[in-house]
Structure formats: structure tokens, C-alpha cells
Computed example of a mutant assay.
Amino acid sequence: MPAAVTGPGTRFADLRSRIVSALVAGGVAFVLVALGGIWAALLATSLAALMLWEWASITRYRGAVPGLGAALPVLGSAAAVLASYLIGWSAGIAILVAVIVAAALRDGLAARPRDAAWAAIGLAYLGTACIAFLWLRLTDPFGVLACAWIVLVVAASDIGGYFAGRLVGGPKLWPRVSPGKTWSGALGAVALAFLSGGVFSWATTGTYYGEVCAVSAVCSALAQAGDLAESAVKRHFGVKDSGRILPGHGGVLDRLDGLTAATLVVAVVTLWRGQTVFIWS
């Protein structure tokens, strides 16, 4: 048998498909976020539905196509995101809580406590993240800049981790959960996110880029934690990818697991401080 071919080319074999799918999906998302209003709301609503559909595929159907039983909580959570824009943030959160309770009761009455727990976790985490992203986009000032910055930081984190991990290699970060991730990749991710976040702040608002650098680094670390958490869930259920909608990336949840974690962190920081991350006076 011939030896397996290894070398620089094989290390980046999936790079082309990753770049193409990222540019297409990212371009569409960027336009909708930039337009704001109902377009940003429809984007957040669609992402909530797609990610929760994939979550049900992983945790309830072990990678198979979800049945009709998954449709109601998925549609309910998507309605909660849209209601946040159309009616108000309190209404959106209330609808999401009602959907979580209804889904938990349905599975609980059917003697499926594990399904109830996993459904509640997905609905709460992903539904809240989509509402938070929409809230950040529609919060003045710098709403569009805040969302663009989050996406940039997470993308820079992915790129830094991808190249540092493949070029430097070294000890694995958590081999039992994600065999491909290394400590060098994790450090490269934080470094590039730190630099990119600061440059973005300097180029757009021109102020407080030191503080934004620090928050960018934290977002990178937590985005990687979100990525590892999703990998742990998939490994627990014996599922490789959350879906196949994005060539080179797997499913939507595979692509946005880090972004959801970073979004929640930025939303919490913004609520705690009462102002955007671009204002530190």
C-alpha cells in the first residue's frame, strides 16, 4: 500500500471550499446586517430556525433529519426572535420562555427527560443569542459597527487558529473532544482577534481601541469555548457535523457556534455597562 500523502498541500486541502462558502454566506449576511431593520430581524430569525433545527438533529435524532416534533419549538423560537423586533424585546423573551416551558412539558409528560433537558438548553442558548445579536444591531450608537466587529473578531479567531494550528502544531488542546485543535492554534486565534479588534476600532471610531482589544481577546477565548462545547455535544451523540448546508464548514451551527458565544458575552457586557463596547468614557 502506498504511504499516505502528507505535506503543506494536505494541511490546507479544505481551504478553498471553506473560503468560497464563507464569502457567499458572509456576503449575504453582511448585506442584511448593514440594511438593518426588518432585514436584520429576518436574518436573526432564519439563523435561529436553522441552528435549532440542527440542534434537534444532533441531540434528538442523532444526526438524522428531524421529525415534525421538532418543528413546533423551532418555529416558536424563530417567532420569538421576530417578535423581539416587531413587538418588543420583553415580548420576544416571554415567547421564548413559553416555548422552552412548553417543549420541556411535552417531553416530560412523554417520559423523555433527557430530550427535555437538551431541547431546553438549545432553545435558551441559541434563541437568546439570536435575540441578543438583533438587539446589538438595533442599539444606537454603533449598532452596525458592533455586529461587524463581533463577526470580524470571531472570523479572525477562526483564521488565526486555523493557520497557527496547521503551521505550528504541537500539543492538542482537548484531543478527546476535538483532535484537530492545538494550544498553538488557540493562542494564534486570540492573538489575531486581539489585533483585528483593535485595528477595527481604530479605523472606525478612532477611540478606545486598547479596551476593544481586550474584549476582542476575551471574545476569541469564549468563541473557542463555544466551539469546543458544540464539538463535545456532537461527540456525545456520535454526530460528525450539525449539517451539510455550508461546504467545508458543515452546518450553520458548526459555523456559528463561536459567534453565538461571543454575541452573548458582548450583550452581557453592553447591558452591564449600559453602553456599547466602543464607548468607555
Score class of each variant (00 low, 15 high):
P73M: 05
A148W: 14
G180W: 10
A34F: 03
W89R: 11
L105M: 09
T59I: 07
T128P: 02
G161Y: 02
A191L: 08
R166M: 07
D115R: 13
G274W: 06
G188V: 03
W202A: 15
A229G: 13
L256I: 11
R62F: 12
D107A: 10
E211P: 11
Y85G: 00
H249R: 03
Y209K: 03
V268Q: 05
G165H: 05
T205Y: 05
A22L: 05
D257K: 06
I93K: 05
I279L: 06
D115G: 03
L222E: 11
A132P: 10
T270E: 12
Y208S: 12
A56S: 15
L123C: 06
P175S: 14
W183G: 09
G251C: 11
L136T: 06
P179D: 05
G143T: 02
I93C: 00
A223H: 03
G76F: 14
L42I: 13
T205E: 13
G161F: 03
A41Y: 10
G143A: 00
L82P: 00
F142K: 01
L105E: 10
P113S: 03
A120D: 11
S46T: 15
L96P: 02
I19S: 04
T59H: 06
F12V: 15
L109S: 07
I87V: 13
D227S: 01
V24S: 13
G170N: 08
P247F: 01
A193G: 04
L15D: 00
R114G: 15
L134E: 05
I58A: 00
G63E: 08
R112Y: 09
S21C: 10
Y125E: 12
E54Q: 07
G160C: 04
A267N: 09
A148N: 09
V266G: 01
I93P: 04
C213F: 06
H249T: 10
E54P: 11
G198K: 10
V99C: 05
S184P: 03
V215W: 09
L82G: 06
A22R: 07
A225S: 13
A71R: 12
T10G: 14
F237Y: 12
A203I: 01
A225G: 08
G206Q: 06
L152M: 06
R18L: 10
A117N: 08
S57K: 11
S157R: 05
L145K: 08
Y162D: 01
I58F: 03
A223I: 13
A221N: 02
L136N: 07
A78D: 04
R11M: 12
L32T: 10
W89D: 13
A44D: 02
I150L: 12
F194Y: 08
L253R: 02
I93R: 09
G76L: 14
R11E: 05
R235E: 05
A70S: 15
